[in-house]
Design a protein around this nucleic acid. Structure first.
Lengths: 229, 229
DNA sequence: CAGTATCCATTTCGATACTG
DNA sequence: CAGTATCGAAATGGATACTG
């Protein structure tokens, strides 16, 4: 059986949303991904076969539309799908308050860089080309080093050296950068403690924290930590 | 694998909530069920083994506490669990707007009567004993006829005749009563069309709609129906 | 780019019956 | 009241490779 056999609206919603990965695909669509391979980068651990299957489920459920777009395919949220925005935000707000323990396996550099690259504040960045480089020395070779090339409204994420001059380079453990992204660690303390180091002209080092906009949940009020001792 | 391998707070939330039935158990706890067999009545199509398993998952996730209560067992939401209240409401609000097609298999009389019996407005009801009777002629014999016996703050739901005088009796198809419960059909039109008939003294027939408080989602604004033709 | 195809180990879960 | 025990059918979905 796939449904719950209940008329309860919560049950009817969960019939759609309780399928594994489904909510994360909706999150990606809300975040502005529209093409299959964009969606894949937001759920890098999902197989393409399964993504394809879920997209079909979401179409049947009236949440996603599949449109032609030139000779490409474009996925869009329907009005009903867009109305899941506040629901998905509520899920994330709860998560950042109550699901704070991240295992090492949760620290996916692909997703981090995908998130960072798409939420840069382009208006705050200078004209011409800017290249950000990120180095996570504690991560395996193939995902250790990343570049984001910004030019106008073009933002490219590379896991190989694109060959341009680097404007500013950031080095930290992967966990430190995730903590910063999630709003659990501020730039200044990270820099002062040495967990994060920046290289580049001082003006650019100073500007970087204004260019990276952090997670949509970074500013959610946190609960008091448990009293210790 | 059970997790998503993502630091995203939405993903971390869904790791807990995407397990089948889990959100419905949280709904029941939010609605005020605390004992195993109360919870069962709110998820009547779930096997007790699976309910037991889910309750253990929810404890591990820090959402539910299992407490002794005399020689009974009592399940309570933790503070984190209680904070899922708005999240679950958001899920239901979306559902009542966008998941409006109910199959016959969604019309579970057990759940309907369980819902109705626990949301009576006791303050609006008279002192002494009141007995409500519901009859769904289109439903199979064993779940066709229900009685709710109210006495003070005691509310008992029976699927057999408790033997008291009936104060007011309601007869309708199961779907009609579900539609009323969900706020899709108002009492007056249902009575006028004959989909619903009441028997009993006029004062009590008039009072009944004030005694039944309807679903928590009955008053959610609905979207415009699709234009037809 | 946008998916399919295939395979199979693993998990899930519904049904039913039973227990202290 | 509050669960366990057991079983088998069905589905899930991860890995990998391939396609127009």
């Amino acid at each position: 059986m796939t449904g719950y056999g209940q008329f309860c609206p919560i049950a009817k919603t969960m019939e759609v949303l309780d399928e594994r990965w489904t909510v994360l695909i909706i999150r990606e669509l809300l975040a502005g991904s529209h093409h299959f391979n964009e969606l894949r980068r937001g759920v890098p651990k999902m197989s393409p076969a399964l993504l394809s299957k879920r997209l079909r489920s979401l179409q049947r459920a009236g949440i996603v539309m599949r449109l032609g777009d030139g000779n490409r395919v474009r996925y869009e949220l329907t009005p009903g799908g867009k109305e899941l925005g506040p629901v998905v935000m509520a899920l994330g707000e709860w998560g950042i308050r109550w699901r704070t323990q991240l295992g090492d396996e949760d620290l996916d550099p692909h997703l981090l860089m995908w998130d960072v690259h798409r939420s840069l504040d382009l208006d705050a960045m200078p004209d011409g080309r800017t290249v950000l480089r990120f180095l996570f020395p504690d991560v395996e070779r193939t995902t250790r080093e990343w570049w984001i090339v910004v030019q106008g409204t073009d933002v490219d994420l590379c896991d190989f050296d694109p060959g341009h001059d680097v404007s500013v380079s950031a080095e930290s453990s992967l966990r430190t950068m995730v903590d910063i992204w999630r709003g659990e660690l501020a730039w200044q303390p990270a820099l002062r403690s040495g967990d994060l180091t920046l290289q580049g002209p001082q003006a650019v080092r100073r500007a970087l924290p204004h260019w990276l906009k952090l997670s949509a949940f970074a500013h959610v009020p946190r609960r008091e930590p448990e009293p210790v001792g």
